[in-house]
Amino acid sequence: MTIKEKGYSHWEGELAEKKLPWWPITRFGIRSTFRKKFFKFFFFGALLPAVVFLVGIYISERLEDFRFMIRNQTNFLTVDPGYFKSYFTGDFLLFMMVAILVFCGSGLISDDLKHNSLQLYFSRPLKKGQYFLGKASVIFFFLFLVTLVPGLVFFIMKLIFAGNFKFFASYPWLPLSIIGYSVLVTLFFALYTLFLSSLSKNRRYVSILIFAVYIFSDIIFGIFYGIFRSPYFALISLKVNLQQIGAFIFNQKLPYSIPWIYSFLIIFSISLLAAVYLKNKVKEVTIIK
């Protein structure tokens, strides 16, 4: 190898602090997720409920045109906060969100641990919080696309199809509920995924963990609930806890007769533990061994 004299010259520009120093991390995370095999299939699968519910909103405003299709089942097409709750807390959507997490989140930290990339990140003017924000924003991006964005689109389309603001006047708090639940579920899943991703250097194990913890918590709840018939076992299930909180936020009847605050405390505690663990697991100073 010979040294290429022409290849190196000093850079004339000035290094500056950016407003979003973590954005390159997020941009790369989003791009690399889209490049993954089968991701697009799962991602568009996760958008299917949104399409179905959007069509439902359209039909609800054109009931006369579609009476031959829906016959007497008009209740199904009553667009109210319950309709939104059904979308946000549906089993299928939650499952697809977990599938998205496997694609976009499993390697976020585990790959950096495996390939010692933390040393490269923290030798830059990047703080630990900014690093985590960059990683978590990848999850925010994908989950907001299947929660917050469709939710707000439903609301706006309902107003457009109706041609008046009656719906908004009836439920002025609904946009806040949409934003609140979307942020809560996304924040929880982001911390949940980053925590699991930091447990192993092998992204396959992390993928299994992301699915297993979600599915098994629900299976265990099902078994105990089947035996003891106590609704308190619902607190074991991540899915049911999110559904309980969702029902509360959208002002609907709770699926299980236990206070919603218990579910909130469970979700909050898991998120807090994950955040504390991440803070202690990733240390900037260890980049120099």
């Binding site: 950096d112 040393q119 490269l120």
Partner: peptide, 14 residues
Amino acid sequence: RRHVGYMPEDDCFI
């Protein structure tokens, strides 16, 4: 850290 360059000992990449 903005104005210095650091090359770690470990094999590291993304």
